[in-house]
Nucleic acid binder design. Structure first.
Lengths: 202, 202
DNA sequence: TGTACATCAGTGAACGCGCGTTCACTGATGTAC
DNA sequence: TGTACATCAGTGAACGCGCGTTCACTGATGTAC
């Protein structure tokens, strides 16, 4: 039966939320609409009252997932000085916790290779999410020119996404952890290392 | 009708080769056995004379794909001094050519997030491929201790895989290219930069 | 404010489709004498 | 070396299944008077 406008909005949010988790857990192709709707407490028939297609849900779920992760990282860094903030970001992103909870983590790491084959709108959303992620880093690289900071931030973001993806592929926990810690060490080295070396030089 | 033993071996190779391309092109879930067998010049019914399941083909195709890429990189570097060799590797891997031809490129970038959900054997094969890739780098970081070289090589490999994956998501060519060039600049900077800075210091 | 009617969120059955997998069948290859 | 038979690579139809999507139906909500 018909629901109130407020309920309708809430239902839609619930579906997007369930999708954002399910896609990151099972992959886009691996997550079926029927199961996903059931997880949102609904039957699958009602899906098309809210969305034109699965692709549209993918785009919105991707958007939601990206925002929630970069917001969480932003919050974790808030108030901290640049170097500490970056260490926090790197530590949080490249944690075993993040690795073991892909359903609430970074969509680019959870869905990267599938997103490359997604439709245009979804890819644009994912790209914007990546740029926002890179910007969280860039704005804290104060010792670099804006251009160089943007470039270094993109590389750092790519390192984190790649390392998390590979750490999830590895079945051997020791190897998986060493991938994460190698990336952490490298990134912290490029943040702090520059400064320390400069001090030695002068 | 029955084929000669030599033909049987050749057919199997053809299927694995077609699969290695098709999986990287369409994704693992997106590549169907019927189409894949047709591409190998066969009907789908004969598939199970060669493989126990799709999963087994995924594992073998992944293995083949990884070997062909690291062999190609190894060949491109052969005979070159370490620093030049690394620059070649980085330049080849992070090229627009590699980005635009995922079907013959690195399986970790083309299938990363799907491999994280693949079966155990496939994930082990993919992990070994990653470690081999990292080793191609590590053995050329002669100015570092073996342990540090391994760690830095893993981080560099993760950077390349992540950057290529994101470059394939971006629909805007300018953004896509700037992701590749940012990662290239960063990696070449960590190879050459260290040395230059050390000279300044001493 | 109360009544009559249109709207539409959600249900559950059904659609066609392509998937991975199985199977009876074929005829050339491989084996045994 | 030649013959008789077993093997099995490849074919093409068929299996059940879950997929995304559609639809007739329901009844509470929203709207118009």
């Amino acid at each position: 039966m018909r629901r109130s406008r407020a309920d309708t909005v809430k239902t839609r949010e619930t579906i997007v939320g369930a999708a954002a988790e399910e896609f990151r857990r099972q992959g886009i192709a691996g997550a079926g609409l029927a199961r996903l709707m059931a997880e949102a407490g609904l039957t699958h028939g009602g899906f098309y009252r809210h969305f034109a297609s699965k692709d549209q849900l993918v785009e919105e779920a991707c958007h939601r997932a990206m925002l929630s992760v970069s917001d969480a990282l932003d919050r974790a860094m808030s108030g901290k000085p640049p170097e500490k903030a970056l260490a926090t970001l790197v530590g949080n992103y490249l944690s075993t916790d993040h690795r073991d909870r892909s359903e609430t983590g970074c969509a680019l790491a959870a869905l990267g290779s599938e997103l490359a084959r997604a439709d245009l709108k979804t890819r644009e959303t994912a790209t914007k999410g990546f740029l926002r992620f890179a910007q969280l880093i860039a704005q804290r690289l104060k010792h670099l020119s804006p251009r160089k900071a943007e470039s270094e931030a993109m590389a750092a973001a790519a390192t984190m996404i790649g390392a998390l993806t590979i750490a999830r592929i590895a079945t051997d926990k020791r190897i998986s952890s060493s991938i994460l810690s190698s990336a952490r060490a490298h990134l912290l080295g490029t943040i702090r290392g520059r400064r320390r070396r400069r001090r030695v030089a002068t």
